[in-house]
Design a protein around this nucleic acid. Sequence first.
DNA 1: TTGTAGGCGTTATCAG
DNA 2: CTGATAACGCCTACAA
Lengths: 346, 346
Amino acid sequence: MKLEQATIKDIARELQVSSSTVSRALKDYPGISDETKRKVKEMAEKLNYRPNAIALSLRKSRSFTIGVIIPEVVHFFFSTVISGIEEVAFSRGYNVILTQTNEKLTREKSSIDTMLSNQIDGFLVSYSKETTEFSHFSKLLDQGYPIVFFDRVPEIQNAIHVIVDDYAGAYEATKHLIQQGFSRIVHLAGPSNLKISKERSRGYSDALRDHGIPFLPELLVECTQGTDEEAHKITTKLLQSLSPRPDAFFANNDLAAVGAMMACKAAGYAVPNEIGVVGFSNWQFCSIVDPSLSSVAQNGFRIGATATEILLDWIEKKINLEDIQTSVVLATELLVRKSSVRIQNT
Amino acid sequence: MKLEQATIKDIARELQVSSSTVSRALKDYPGISDETKRKVKEMAEKLNYRPNAIALSLRKSRSFTIGVIIPEVVHFFFSTVISGIEEVAFSRGYNVILTQTNEKLTREKSSIDTMLSNQIDGFLVSYSKETTEFSHFSKLLDQGYPIVFFDRVPEIQNAIHVIVDDYAGAYEATKHLIQQGFSRIVHLAGPSNLKISKERSRGYSDALRDHGIPFLPELLVECTQGTDEEAHKITTKLLQSLSPRPDAFFANNDLAAVGAMMACKAAGYAVPNEIGVVGFSNWQFCSIVDPSLSSVAQNGFRIGATATEILLDWIEKKINLEDIQTSVVLATELLVRKSSVRIQNT
DNA sequence: TTGTAGGCGTTATCAG
DNA sequence: CTGATAACGCCTACAA
């Protein structure tokens, strides 16, 4: 009833051979008689032997484990990324240790500490909103620890990262709204200390400029929280205060887009005919809200998978640090649904 | 530029003392002079010493890591559970290793194997849909490995598990619909091999019976997939084929509920006035669909947190196996929104 | 108050 | 073809 795992020594004792022989037999090393191999493997099976990964880690100074640090697990985008990470890691024989920072810097730092203690082979990181200074990461990089950043990437020289083309995504979304005949387009932006927010805002304003629509500062509003409630309030206020009223909303995330959409409906405007709405991320619910929400899709699974491939190649020295492109930019895709397409009169 | 971690030996060498002294000084053991303690700690700081958790694990045959096996990460409910797990584990000094089975039995088994290899201290499991036979779990339990099941729990004697009161939740939801004046209530049920589905169906039929409404087999329909598309199709068909038509839908999950709701709207019926809808799980999107979806909330965070508390207490022998209630049942809460409440005529 | 030795499970190295 | 030994980093019983 105890949970005693059989070890190599146990097999050795039973078979009256040395543990080195057992070790070699189990790994099909050359120079071991087939007879011995057979016996050893049989006994291993019988004793239900399982190699002790901890001992192996100690020996090799490698844990075959990677650490993932993200702001939140309960978040459609991040959970998708995790899924990609887990898939690739598993298929390449690595474990995934997960921590969420809940957007707290202290938590981020202490997570790094425990992971270092656990002799993690490398890090996958999307940092917290509180993080504005990156020395705790650059120190690690200097010491030679592999880190691949994704989504939220720091301004560190040569930090490897995987992101999506936020600029192009935002540009396309804005262009699409313009082509639908909307011209007073509000951008509900994200926190301006995140690069993704800045890129999306840039895409928005460039698209306006390229289509001859003046950029108006009062139409670019920062939503720090990114919740639907916040966006709802802001939108309601904008609809009342601005004149002429806005005729479209491009939100930096889907939840905010839905909040805006609901505010428009509540104020008596028809979406999409009177007001168009586009979100960003393509969360699950985009297709089930009414009207269904157009959104810029960023493939979280692929972000996670790509980041993990790079990290593991790096860990396994399959690639030299110098050969890695410091920045992998994945394409986004605008998914046009009902919320942004004006219905033709029949 | 190498990633050489300082060890106890390094500190010892620098200070010309033995490594045991260092070890003891670092842990504030009694019988070490304050002077030595101070010096050791200083040097530890200076060399940026970090205890090697791997070596510790080997020594103590304890890894301070728990393994989580779930069907899918990209799933609102499960991600909430993970969040609860991670929170408690972190606060008690444990790491979380995560794998998803993608509902595959083979993956479930191989995950267990790698986790065992990694000398995991215990398991938190919600098994895959493919799993119909539980010997791979009961074997572990017999060997003394702590396992706490949640959400999907196996029919193993004395297996510890944390679940929500599916029966009561379904009962309340159905009763609520009845009280709103609905009487031809369809139940879109889940796969019948999962206990949660069975419990929810039982709650549904008992509520009908207790309120004098006959249970009609044709109103209990199994949705094996649980997707909105599937529910949409089924609902459309039911609305056409049944006479008199159903006047309410209680779905075993929210996605199906939304599918049903959209089918009703597409068929020209008003929700909630002509047809009421209630879901189960209280996914994020419940409040943002139109009309907002009434749903039975199951607190995933609390499920994860509770399961983890039990597991860690068990691991740390704070509780005897005999003293653990084999089954912890958390309450559900019916959240009434618009989709099920008939609007009063003014 | 401090040091020595042994061992957790594994494998690389050197000898037979 | 196989065995003995040492080492990965840490802790602890025993000794001094």
